[in-house]
C-alpha cells in the first residue's frame, strides 16, 4: 500500500496542474499582503470605530494573523477549486492515458489501487493547505509583523499572539479536513469518467450551487441546507469563537466525514465494476 501511495505521489508531482494551486497561492498571498500594507488605513479606521478607546492591543492590529484570517474568508471558493484541480485527475487521468491497461492487469486489487489514489489526493490537499498557512502567516509576519488577533464576528474577540497562533493552527487543521470532503467529492466523479475536466466542473457546480442555496433566504432552501456539504464548510471559523465550541466542531466534522465516506463508497462501487475500455 505504501508503494502504491508513493507511485501516486510521483504521478501527482509530475503533473503541471498540481502546481497551479501552489503557484496561485504563492502569487496571490504577496499581492493581498501588499494590499494590506497600502490599504490598511480603511481597515484601521473600521477597527478603531468598533473597538473605541476601551482596548489595549499589543502589536499592530493589521498583522499576519488578521491578514490570514481575512484571506481565508476571501479564498473560500478558490481553495476548493485548487483542490478539485488535482482531485479531478486522480482516477480519470489513468483511464484517458491508457495507464490502467498496465496497472489493472497486475495482481493487485482495484480497491487497493483506488484507495491509494485517494490517500495521495489527501496528502496533496493537506500539503496545499499547509503551504497556504505557512506562506500566509510566514510572509505576513515579515511584512506586517505579528500581534494580537482581533476577530469581529458575533462580538469582538481579542486573542493574544500565542492564543492566535494556536487558533490559526486549529482552524487550518479543520480546514484541511473540510477540503478532504471536497477532494473526495471530486474524486468520486473522477472514478466515474475518463477525463479530468468533468469531475472538476461537477464538484465546483455542487459547491457553487450549495453556496447559492445558502445565500438565498427561501424556506425550501433552508430545509435542504442540512443535506448540502457546503453547509458545514464554515466549521473552520469555529476555531475563532470563545470558548471554542468543540462539540459543534466535532458534529460538523463528523457529518463531513460521513459525506466523504459516502462519496468514497460510491467511487469504490463504480470503480470495482467499471469496464476499462480505454
Amino acid at each position: 500500500m505504501f508503494g502504491l501511495i508513493r507511485n501516486e505521489m510521483l504521478v501527482i508531482s509530475g503533473r503541471w496542474r498540481s502546481y497551479i494551486g501552489f503557484i496561485g497561492i504563492s502569487v496571490l498571498m504577496p499581492l493581498i499582503l501588499w494590499g494590506f500594507v497600502y490599504g490598511s488605513e480603511n481597515i484601521h479606521q473600521e477597527y478603531a470605530r468598533e473597538l473605541g478607546e476601551s482596548f489595549m492591543v499589543v502589536g499592530s492590529i493589521i498583522n499576519a494573523f488578521l491578514a490570514t484570517y481575512i484571506i481565508m474568508n476571501a479564498l473560500w471558493i478558490h481553495i476548493p477549486f485548487l483542490v478539485a484541480l488535482a482531485a479531478g485527475d486522480a482516477v480519470a487521468a489513468d483511464g484517458s492515458n491508457g495507464i490502467f491497461r498496465i496497472t489493472l492487469t497486475r495482481p493487485v486489487s482495484r480497491l487497493k489501487i483506488l484507495t491509494s489514489k485517494l490517500i495521495a489526493t489527501y496528502i496533496y490537499t493537506a500539503l496545499l493547505l499547509l503551504f497556504c498557512a505557512l506562506w500566509s502567516v510566514g510572509i505576513g509576519s515579515l511584512v506586517l509583523g505579528t500581534g494580537d488577533l482581533i476577530v469581529i464576528d458575533k462580538g469582538i474577540l481579542i486573542l493574544s499572539r500565542e492564543e492566535a497562533l494556536v487558533r490559526m493552527a486549529l482552524s487550518f487543521a479543520v480546514a484541511i479536513l473540510v477540503m478532504f470532503s471536497v477532494a473526495t467529492l471530486c474524486f468520486m466523479f473522477s472514478a466515474m469518467v475518463n477525463n479530468g475536466i468533468g469531475p472538476i466542473i461537477g464538484a465546483m457546480l455542487i459547491i457553487i450551487i450549495g453556496y447559492l442555496v445558502k445565500a438565498i433566504p427561501l424556506d425550501f432552501f433552508d430545509r435542504i441546507e442540512p443535506f448540502m456539504i457546503v453547509s458545514y464548510f464554515d466549521v473552520w471559523l469555529d476555531a475563532f469563537r470563545d470558548p471554542i465550541p468543540w462539540s459543534d466542531i466535532w458534529n460538523k466534522l463528523t457529518i463531513l466525514t460521513l459525506f466523504s465516506v459516502s462519496f468514497y463508497g460510491i467511487a469504490v462501487y463504480v470503480f470495482l465494476k467499471k469496464d476499462i475500455t480505454s
Binding site: I102, T105, P107
Partner: peptide
C-alpha cells in the same frame, strides 16, 4: 478479479506509460 492474474504478464493494445 486481479488476484487471478498472479504469474500473468499482459500487453493490451498500444503500450502507454507516464510519458514525462
Amino acid at each position: 478479479g486481479n488476484e487471478a492474474l498472479n504469474g500473468v504478464g499482459a500487453l493490451i493494445e498500444r503500450a502507454d506509460f507516464h510519458k514525462h
